[in-house]
């Protein structure tokens, strides 16, 4: 298969230590593919293979350093001599809530996650984030009750759990973050009025007749309507209006 790790050239093998065990792998591969080259068929610790799902948060260390580094196994290219482990799951606390009943205040977040005040500002979470999010900053925003700030700072979070794994205060930053994003989007951002209006119009059956008419048309008639349909130009602003307003 196109993705098969064994189809690579093997003239440049380097050693890696996966959970302490040594394997020789091609130096151009990501950690994920290198392990497959070594013979693994991943079950845990492998998801989208594209850096967005958070299944393969990885902690590693170069041989000549005491410092721990982080990355995603699907995105990080192997380094000779690296020691690594993949963290496929983290048992973080999660609070249940009813978003309809909330208002989006800092107090609500603090009530669900009172441990945010235990943050000691050590910055280990930020250093552990494979998405380069300033995690400590958004935890500070959460403490201040700046929910919109948390939402914006944490937007790229993939919920891999590496931040929580390094936290001496046992915070579950990623759950504080998604709660804040949801509260911000739901309660602190104006709702889309056009959406509400269109939902009402659909419910009132305003498009029923025109849609049923389309459904009854022959393919040739549909093709003609398709060819003739008026296209909104690329560079216009949101207030563009079509010439033919019959069906809108």
């Amino acid at each position: 298969m196109s993705e098969n790790a064994a189809n690579r050239s093997v003239d440049d093998l380097v050693p890696i230590f996966f959970m302490g065990k040594r394997y020789m792998v091609p130096s151009s591969l990501t950690i994920q593919k290198a392990l497959e080259y070594a013979g693994y068929q991943h079950v845990r610790g492998c998801g989208c293979r594209g850096g967005i799902c958070g299944a393969c948060g990885t902690v590693y260390r170069d041989p000549d350093s005491y410092r721990l580094q982080v990355g995603l196994a699907c995105q990080t290219v192997v380094e000779s001599g690296m020691h690594l482990m993949i963290l496929p799951y983290y048992p973080g606390n999660r609070a249940e809530f009813d978003i309809d009943e909330m208002q989006g205040t800092g107090g609500e977040v603090a009530a669900l996650y009172p441990e945010i005040f235990k943050c000691i500002g050590c910055n280990a979470c930020t250093q552990a984030c494979p998405m380069d999010i300033d995690v400590m900053h958004y935890m500070a925003q959460a403490i201040r009750g700046d929910i919109k700030g948390v939402a914006e700072t944490s937007f790229d979070c993939i919920m891999c759990g590496l931040c929580a794994s390094r936290c001496p205060a046992e915070e579950v930053q990623f759950n504080v973050a998604i709660l804040s994003r949801r509260l911000n989007a739901r309660h602190l951002t104006p709702r889309a009025k056009h959406l509400e209006k269109q939902v009402e119009r659909v419910a009132a059956g305003e498009f029923e007749e025109s849609l049923r008419e389309l459904m009854g048309k022959s393919t040739d008639d549909l093709k003609q309507l398709y060819r003739d349909r008026e296209a909104e130009p690329q560079m216009t602003e949101d207030d563009w209006k079509p010439q033919d307003a019959r069906y809108v």
Binding site: H194, Q198, V199, F207, L211, R229, P242, Y247, V248
Partner: peptide, 12 residues
Amino acid sequence: AADKVGKDSPYF
């Protein structure tokens, strides 16, 4: 989703 009232609809 065709929700921009005045320029779009489920028809299009």
